[in-house]
Simulated scan of single mutants.
Amino acid sequence: MKSLILTGLLAMVTSFTSFAGPTIELPGRWSPEKANTWYDEQPWLVGCNFTPSTAINQLEMWQADTFDPKTIDRELGWAADIGMNTVRVYLHDMLWQQDSEGFLTRIDQFLGIADKHGIKTMFVLFDSCWASFPKLGKQPTPRPHRHNSGWVQSPNFNTLKDVTKHKSLKPYVTGVIGKFKNDPRVLCWDLYNEPGNGNSDDRIRKIRKEAICLILLEHTFRWSRELNPSQPLTCGGLWTGEWIGPNSTHLSKFILENSDIISFHNYEDLHKTIDRVGSIRPFGRPLLCTEYLARSVDSKFETHLPYFKKNKIAAYNWGLVAGKTQTQYPWASLSKKFTAEPKIWHHDILMPDGTPHIQSEVDLMKSLTSKKQIPSSQ
């Protein structure tokens, strides 16, 4: 019976995907001129993917019992001190279901703290990565020496795989964006992080997951466009495979034809990063690298930051303070046993007391930014 249900589901997904594929540009997209005018008003955007060191994942960051404004304030202060003016921050749909009003209040509190430090926020609504079946409440303790051992997907896989449940997510999308759609403290909206990514627990082939994520992404763009936010929309979905060309996917094409500003992830060396940028530069829209910095595979501050600044490509490295996400450990720690921190960290910049992991990296960032920050909206 389960196999028959799965077969039916995949047939439905294929049907949806064949419908979604030709649907390229949805109404309401910003023109390149509008997007570039918006971008010209920004300083060079430099920041990080931020989770406070006291949170293992999105749920622990935002739930009422573990929301930690004191740590957020301290760590965003450190971010500003080294020249950052923006952060990319993950939300989660289950937080809306748990306590929508409280969730919005905490988001507003976070924005107030960030704004105090001259930092604007890019919020991420959905995420395809890591644990497939998150649960509200107390979150697990980190697995020792393991990279990102507690991060969770949004929505959970049971909701994602049943396309008939996708519309239940609309109140979350419209509730959050609707509340802050004209808030100058919000830089932009990243609707879906790496759609199609995942892990073996997803129990479905990657190509099928990508197809299902495309359906949800299209819904999310439509719901967001209906609100007409003053901030641009993007999707952190350019991260693997061929983005442009005969082997590019419907998902990549859809993202490139619907994002107001184009964001991408690249953990490769500078030469490969430059090639990636060259492939999407012809779209004539602002470019934001919303994930980079993997020292163990030659994605480094000293190579990438000067290039990003010269070309006014926004730069968001992964991580700020080494904490419960343990992303100073490399991806190899998922399959290989580590008993101590690597000498050279994979991600992250600062130790828990604010001391730089590598002082020269912080000095470089300060020199490139001259600590110029986005003016406070207050």
Rank of each mutant, 00 (worst) to 15 (best):
G198I: 03
N85F: 12
W318N: 07
D275V: 13
H147V: 01
G8T: 05
P286V: 06
S15Q: 14
N258M: 05
Q373H: 15
I244K: 09
L6K: 12
V163E: 05
G236V: 01
D115N: 15
R295L: 09
T17Y: 15
G354M: 04
S132R: 12
K309N: 09
P195Y: 03
T240M: 14
T141E: 15
G196N: 06
S15W: 15
I82F: 12
T249K: 12
K135E: 14
M84Y: 11
G319P: 10
T303E: 15
V297L: 08
T290Y: 03
D183L: 01
S100G: 03
P375Q: 01
R143G: 02
C289W: 02
D68Y: 05
T355G: 02
E257Q: 14
L287Y: 05
K135Q: 13
N156H: 13
V163A: 12
F338Q: 07
S279I: 10
Y292A: 14
W331F: 13
S296R: 14
E341P: 12
S149R: 05
K310C: 05
H346R: 08
D363F: 00
P330H: 05
K366T: 03
K167D: 09
L238Y: 01
L91K: 00
L350Y: 07
F123T: 01
I255V: 12
F19Y: 13
E101R: 14
F16Q: 09
D65E: 15
E218A: 07
M94Q: 11
E257R: 13
V176L: 08
L270K: 07
F50S: 02
K366R: 12
K336E: 15
F180Y: 09
Y329G: 02
